[in-house]
Design a protein around this nucleic acid. Structure first.
Lengths: 208, 208
DNA sequence: TAGATTTCTGGTCATGCAGCCAGGAGCGGC
DNA sequence: GCCGCTCCTGGCTGCATGACCAGAAATCTA
């Protein structure tokens, strides 16, 4: 399905699969709570109730663990967002559904999103996940969809889909730290505002 | 001028002031190159050509250094952006000048901006700079300006200035990692696109 | 010049980290 | 019972870090 990922299945035991998922889940919560730098093997294993060594047993190294975390978090997000977007038929409808479902998923699964963003940020310098990270893919997919509906005449023809996709993703991702630190922050209200902003920004001319 | 900052001047020598500025400047470049985590005292002092101990001599601890870095970087950015915004008289004009001058400053002083964002991000968990950090202040100031011109009728009356300010800042800050990692990224083109997006999103109804 | 003060160096320390490893525990097959 | 395998523990190593410190060097004072 996804090119470049999981070329050869490593033949995993039931327990191994379960442990990997369990450890990755704990890593997600730990990263969300303490940031990428604070998510040491010691901290993660403590949360699960296992020894530090067990993480090294089930994962080749920290990169391996982080790849699993991103995969796991992205999987859940995509399976939530995709059907909601595909249920729409028009470009503007899909864009609205995209923004709304992204922010709704964030509201209900904050840790997953924080972890993804945190990893993407912290791994930025090195060549690692950055290339096919969920966040980067999200921009690409969004850009492609915008471009398609733009040529179909459902969006204003004179915006750059790449810049628009970046701005939309940025507005979505900006909600993450606010959710964490600002108790006043109303994500549902924010969602409506962002939908309105980008509806106006992408709307095709109605009055020719 | 700025409430809450620099309550008591610590009576600094000329050399001390110069060294602090020099070390902070090196820290900015180091953070921009290697990220917050990679900016150790050893790395920073190496860049300046001094011993590690000298940083500890001039700064109480790492937080003290980071506060100086943010202060120094923000000072420069504000002195660049403020006059360009104030040169405009209308709300839309100021918004355009705000976005343009922010991105232009980023283009020409990438390291300052990267360092500010990196510090704000990495210090997020702890209670440190986050409260009166330049980034947070930037959102507040922008929100206030938007709100003012909105009640003056120069902007669409039915958007939330807070959400709009967050979206604008997010679009501006999203340019930072792209500048660093994507050689294809054209920040001037991006600037025009973002100006257009938020002009459409804030524009008052012309056709009543 | 002599002494005091500021500025600076490089070594040392405790801490926290990822990864490695010797061995133990549990459990199935035979 | 006892091998063989998977699963797991906790100690260890080597490394990087921020902070501390004793004292050297430079600069100023008188």
């Amino acid at each position: 399905m996804q090119p470049g990922a999981a070329a050869d299945e490593p033949e995993r035991t039931f327990i191994e699969t379960a442990r990997r998922a369990q450890i990755a889940a704990a890593a997600i919560d730990t990263i969300a709570e303490l940031g990428y730098a604070g998510a040491s093997f010691a901290r993660i294993s403590e949360r699960v109730g296992i020894s530090r060594g067990l993480i090294s047993y089930h994962f080749a190294d920290k990169d391996d663990l982080m790849r699993q975390v991103v995969h796991q978090a992205a999987e859940e997000a995509i399976s939530y967002i995709r059907p909601r977007v595909l249920a729409e038929s028009t470009g503007p409808g899909m864009l609205r559904a995209y923004i709304e479902s992204n922010l709704a998923f964030m509201r209900d699964h904050r840790n997953n999103v924080i972890a993804m963003i945190e990893i993407a940020r912290s791994a930025e310098g090195r060549r690692s996940y950055h290339d096919d990270t969920a966040v980067v893919n999200a921009v690409r997919a969004l850009e492609h969809a915008l471009s398609g509906f733009q040529t179909a005449g459902q969006f204003r023809p004179d915006f750059d889909p790449h810049a628009m996709a970046i701005a939309i993703r940025a507005a979505i991702e900006a909600a993450s730290p606010l959710l964490a630190s600002d108790p006043e922050f109303d994500i549902d209200s924010y969602s409506r505002q962002i939908v309105a902003i980008f509806d106006l920004a992408t709307r095709a001319d109605d009055t020719p």
